[in-house]
Amino acid sequence: MKKLIAITLLLASVNAFALTVDEIVNKANEAAYYAGNDGFADVKMVITDAGGGERIREFRILRLNTGDGNQKFYVYFKEPADVRRQVFMVWKKVKQGQDDDRWLFLPALNLVKPIAPGDKRTSFVGSDFVYEDVSGRALWEDTHELIEETETQYIVKNTPNDHGAVDFSSYTVQIDKQTFLPVKAEYLDKNGKLYRRVEATKVETVQGFPTVLESRVDDLARGGGRTVNTFSNIEYNVGLKEMIFTERFLRRPPREATR
C-alpha cells in the first residue's frame, strides 16, 4: 500500500513537472466549473458598498455539463423581494466565435427576455461579481503564461486577446497545485494598477470534489466595496435533466430550484 502511494505521488509529481500552461489552465477550469456531471448549490451573496451599506441576494444555482465543455446554468432568485422568482439562464458555449445564450424570466410579466451576449463584464445583480464570474470565461479569450511556480501554487498570467472587449489589461491567477482550484485572481486595469481581487476563501471537499464554500470579490478601485458569496447545500451528480434548462422551466421553476 505504501509502495502504491509512493508510486502515485511520484507519478503525480512527474505529471506536475510535465504540465504545460495550457494543461494547467485547463485543469483549473475543470476544477472550478465542471465538477461532476451536474450539481446545485444555494448561494448567499452579501454585497457591501464602500460606505458599509449591505445588500443581500439569495439564489439557487443549477448546473449541467452538456459535453464539449458546454454547460447550462439555471439561477433561481429567492431574495431580495423585488427579484424573487426571477430566473437567469445561460447556455454556455466555449467554441470560439459562439456567444452564450442568456435569458431572464420576469415572473410578474410572465416574460422570457433574452439578454444581449455582449455585456458579460457587467455586474451580476448589482454585486462585485460579473456575469463571466458566474459561468466562467472561455480559455481561448486569453493568452496564458506560467510566470511562477511555488511549492503549492502555479501562478498564471492571463492577457486578453481582444483588449477592447474587457475592462482589464491582464489578470494573474494563483492555482492550488493539489486541487487545481484557482484560489486568487488579481485584475490589473488599463494602467497596470490592481483594481479587483477575487478569492476562494474557504475550500472543502464535497463528494470527492474540491469545492469553494466561500468566495469574495474586492473592488479596490472604488474604495472598498466587496461581495462575499457563501455556498451551502452543495450536491454533485444529482441527475439534473436537460429539459430543466428550457423556456418551459423558466416559466414554471422545477422542484430542484424551489425546494
Binding site: 456567444d99 445564450d101 433574452p114 439578454i115 444581449a116 451576449p117 455582449g118
Partner: peptide
C-alpha cells in the same frame, strides 16, 4: 424571429 446578432438581440 428573435436571436443574437452582432453582440446584441
Amino acid at each position: 424571429v428573435r436571436g443574437a446578432l452582432a453582440g446584441g438581440i
